[in-house]
């Protein structure tokens, strides 16, 4: 493709991340000899791209494998199969899943993560200076004084006072701690940040503050976000494109507005219908039919389409054949045999 691509790996020029047929199976062990009795397919045959500068939302219920994807991209876990391509700041493309430890260390400057739990994600025994400055120290960026100045600047950037440098995390509220985590993620000027349920643990008013902050930072630094959440309202608000996950598989990918206005997968439709809206009249008008049953055990994924036992539209084909993720409209992919024939309802904007 481009001349900057040094290896034979290639991806679309606009893309920063390309996840290709990624699989992650966790062995389930049993007994004192740790015999493997089966695998949890946390991520199974996932393929999607993230464009430079966009926010890609990943939604799904618990156990859908959405958090595993972030950890795979950041190589906190090793892939079982497939590849994850990342475009570096210099334009070169690398496969994150095969990097050596040393190259990985280098890559960590360019991709970072924001965690869900503002309490367990900050070491309580370190001051803000040590916490936010740790990535700088590890990568040997600048002298002590320079690191101090940089940390102060980062704190200011996320709306915290630079005077807080010597404080420990326990002196801060959940929302503030989350901002400390954001400052730490920004320390090395990354181009890509995975936010794993970054505001789920926060109160409504504080979550809104942090979402606005994240959007401002994205604008200022041209960041690309992978925004993982179970909150459909939040994901719609922040994402340009969305992937919907169910039992380790991607069911639908597409631009937010189009997908929410007219979903192509029955699961997306069901998810959207399930969200209770802060709109009593609308709720009364909209006759909600809750989805039957519950998400299957990740160790015993149903045959065929994993969603078929709960799907209102399932037929014999769905029970027998695993659908592929396929393009049905420009920019929209869906993993459903009947995507073309189904007429699904999304969210009707008032």
């Amino acid at each position: 493709m481009t001349s900057t691509t040094k290896t034979k790996l290639s991806m679309h020029e606009d893309h920063i991340i390309s996840v290709r047929a990624a699989r992650k199976y966790f062995p389930v062990q049993e007994g004192w000899m740790r015999r493997v009795k089966g695998y949890v397919k946390a991520v199974d045959d996932i393929t999607f791209d993230i464009r430079k500068g966009e926010t890609f939302g990943l939604v799904g219920e618990s156990g859908s494998g959405k958090s595993s994807i972030a950890r795979l991209i950041l190589r906190a876990y090793d892939l079982t199969g497939g590849e994850i391509l990342f475009r570096r700041a210099d334009g070169s493309v690398i496969d994150v899943s095969t990097l050596s430890d040393r190259d990985l260390r280098d890559i960590r400057r360019e991709m970072q993560m924001i965690f869900q739990d503002p309490y367990s994600s900050l070491n309580p025994r370190m001051t803000l200076l040590d916490l936010v400055g740790e990535p700088l120290v590890i990568h040997g960026v600048g002298s002590q004084g320079e690191i101090r100045d940089r940390v102060a600047e980062l704190l200011r950037l996320v709306g915290l006072r630079p005077e807080y440098l010597t404080r420990y995390p326990h002196a801060f509220s959940g929302g503030q701690r989350q901002r400390i985590g954001i400052a730490r993620a920004l320390a090395l000027n990354p181009s890509f940040i995975a936010a794993d349920e970054a505001v789920s643990a926060l109160d409504v008013s504080v979550a809104a503050q942090n979402i606005n902050l994240m959007q401002d930072l994205q604008e200022k630094f041209g960041l690309t976000y992978l925004f993982i959440t179970h909150d459909l309202g939040m994901v719609e608000h922040i994402s340009d494109r969305i992937g919907v996950m169910y039992l380790g598989r991607l069911m639908e990918v597409g631009p937010t507005d189009e997908m929410f206005a007219k979903p192509l997968h029955p699961y997306t439709e069901a998810l959207l219908a399930a969200v209770p809206q802060p709109d009593p009249r609308g709720n009364r008008a909209r006759k909600r039919v809750p989805l039957k049953g519950e998400i299957a055990d990740a160790m015993n994924i149903p045959t065929g389409c994993p969603f078929h036992p709960r799907c209102a539209y399932a037929d014999a084909k769905c029970r027998g054949e695993v659908p592929e993720l396929r393009v049905v409209q420009a920019g929209r992919q869906v993993r459903c045999h009947h995507a073309e024939t189904l007429d699904l309802t999304g969210v009707v904007a008032e």
Binding site: A76, L104, R108, M113, Q116, S121, E134, I138, R184, L188
Partner: peptide, 14 residues
Amino acid sequence: SEDYVLAARLAGAS
């Protein structure tokens, strides 16, 4: 399993 240990690892800590 603490997130802050993962965070340090993701920051490139040995």
